[in-house]
Simulated scan of single mutants.
Amino acid sequence: MKKQWLMRLLVALGLGSLGAATPAQAASNYYTTNPGIIRVKKTVAYYKDAAKTKHDSTVKVGHYAKISKVVTVKGHAPVLKTNTGKYVTANKAFVAKTSGYQNPKAYYQVNYTQIKPYGKVGYTVKRNYEGIKTWKIMRRLGTANGYNKYNQATYNAVRNFQKNHHLKVTGNVNEKTWVKLGFSKSSWTSIDAYVAPLGAHAWNGRTEHINAMIKQAYQYKGNPYLVGSSSKPIYGTDCSGLVMQALYAGGINPAPISSIHHAYPGNEWNSRNLWASKKFKHVAYSNRQRGDLVFYYQPGTHVIWHVAIYLGGNKVIESWPPRIMVQPIKNGQRSNVAGIARVFN
């Protein structure tokens, strides 16, 4: 009797089997067709075999998994085979069918199809524009001054270049002038169009999405701080440009804030626009967690002027002159924290 009672308890917990379930029980209590993606409702065990004789690990509430098929071994209740080859109970009391990990509706929704560029791909570069195109143009024309903003000197240099090469004289760089400057035609659009690839799937949970975001940010580590820039990891960025590409990798699209518009006049301060967004959950500094965004204000003005990604352990990854680097959350250059925004809830 004691053994039977123990077996019934294990079945209730999804950790064992009591024998073959009746057709009615299987239909009502267990998944008999592939649910696609599941979310764990109560702590369950993973097994190495469908008969659940070889324990692999234990997973807690909130865990997600992709299911490849439903398996039924004679004399046992149905189990779900995951895409990792492990098995978990098909008991609906312990696992629930879901479309995948997602933020609450009030916040930015997580994308599971590649995020598209927001803005005009192949935009003409004009006075006061910033970004990678401006940086390249200024270096090519010898007007670089440590701050990649399309200034009057660059405008004049472009006009002279256009005159000398029989191009329409505008002082602006369009595709024809770009190519004549010696840059590839493909780079005219590829610099603008870059959006970091998604680094997590719908069947990955919060931790994996945070890891995807941070992994993307690390690809820029060591690159130079470049104002108004947010493109491929072969280039530098500024603070919000780095954050935007990291967000894209995690599946978050903060449009109309975008990597393309980041190069437009005035958009170098997208840290302020991100801070003002109501689609991030703001939490207390004392509750900061890995993957949160840390916003800083300028001493004296209290205006937002910087954003970084929290790594845990009082460290952040950020783009701050002269380069993209890992730093303490507070240091001698910027220590006035305005607040913390949570990306994944």
Rank of each mutant, 00 (worst) to 15 (best):
K116V: 01
N172F: 15
H76W: 04
A106C: 09
D192V: 00
I137T: 02
G131Q: 02
K81W: 10
V95C: 08
Y107I: 01
H165Q: 13
G142F: 12
N111L: 12
T124Y: 12
V110S: 12
N160L: 10
E208T: 15
K168S: 13
P78Q: 08
T154S: 09
V73P: 11
I214C: 13
V179L: 05
K126D: 12
G142D: 09
K86L: 13
S184H: 04
A93G: 07
N160Q: 13
I132A: 01
Q109N: 02
A193K: 05
S184C: 10
Y150D: 08
W178P: 08
N204G: 06
L181M: 06
V179Q: 06
Q162F: 03
L181I: 01
T207H: 15
T89G: 02
R140M: 09
Y101K: 06
K136M: 12
K74C: 03
W178V: 01
T72S: 08
T84P: 10
G100K: 00
L141I: 03
S190R: 03
K176F: 02
V88D: 05
S187P: 10
T113Q: 14
S184K: 07
S99L: 14
A77S: 14
H165V: 04
V95A: 07
V173G: 06
Y112A: 12
R159M: 08
N145P: 09
K180R: 11
K120I: 08
A144C: 07
I191T: 02
L167N: 13
V70Q: 03
A200K: 08
S184W: 03
T154W: 01
Q114P: 15
A202V: 00
R206W: 08
K97R: 15
K105P: 15
